[in-house]
Amino acid sequence: MLRIGLTGGIGSGKTTVADLLRSHGLPVIDADLIARDVVKPGEPALAELAEAFGHDILNEDGSLNRSLLATRAFVDAKHTELLNSITHPRIKAETARRFAVAEAAGEKAVVYDMPLLVDNGLDKDMDLVVVVNVDAETRVSRLVKWRGLTEEDARRRLDAQISDEQRLAAADVVIDNNGHLECLDRQIADLMVRIRGLEVE
């Protein structure tokens, strides 16, 4: 089974690319969705996060206040690493389970949509690494406009990730998402040709 790692810096439009690949029939394992699942009420990771970052990160119904956690977890590298040490082992285990399910179902290729693919060295486990690339200033403006972040918070989150240069160095395919959707569609079509070719090798 072909494992396709899909990544990109925050605000790059990686989710849009994942949706387009899904529309072409590729199953997608979404690390962000898995990350939400592992911190649901009753999950051990949620209790550990409350201990590490303060019990007020829990809403009245016991769910995680993700925005409050983010303001504390991304304040510096030390706190980001603390967050990762709690959540990443659970995300890794659930991801492995979902890959196994896909392989057992006879899937020929699976997309792993993972923001920190290169940051965590997981690109080396992929057969093909696809990086969605957008210039940093555009990503900041998108985060402010579409996610409601302050400019300061947006830049802090960008800074918490590896550099664009490091991410691009790991890429087998770079999707340029600085332009219009039509341009993106053409690049996805070309990528699908490459993927289908790899499936039959």
Rank of each mutant, 00 (worst) to 15 (best):
G8D: 02
I10V: 13
G11K: 02
S12Q: 04
G13N: 05
S23R: 09
I29H: 05
D30R: 09
D30T: 10
D37V: 04
V38F: 01
V38P: 03
P41W: 09
G42Q: 09
E43I: 04
A45P: 03
L46N: 00
A52M: 04
I57M: 02
L58W: 00
N59F: 02
E60T: 08
G62H: 07
L64H: 05
L64A: 00
N65E: 07
L68S: 03
A70L: 00
A73Q: 01
F74V: 01
D76W: 07
E81Y: 06
N84V: 05
N84E: 14
I86M: 03
T87Y: 09
T87G: 08
H88K: 11
H88M: 10
P89C: 12
I91Q: 00
K92F: 11
A93D: 12
A96R: 11
R97V: 04
R97P: 01
R98D: 05
A100P: 02
A102G: 07
E103I: 04
E103G: 06
K108Q: 05
A109C: 05
V110L: 09
P115S: 12
L116F: 10
L117V: 09
D119H: 13
G121N: 12
L122H: 13
L122C: 12
D123V: 02
V134P: 03
V134M: 08
D135N: 04
E137C: 07
T138F: 05
R142Q: 14
V144H: 06
K145E: 15
W146R: 14
W146D: 15
R147F: 13
G148E: 15
G148S: 14
L149V: 13
A154I: 08
R155I: 15
R155Y: 14
R156E: 15
Q161D: 15
E165F: 10
E165L: 11
Q166Y: 15
L168E: 15
A170L: 14
N177F: 12
H180K: 10
A189Y: 13
D190S: 03
L191Y: 09
L191M: 12
V193H: 14
I195Q: 01
R196F: 14
G197A: 04
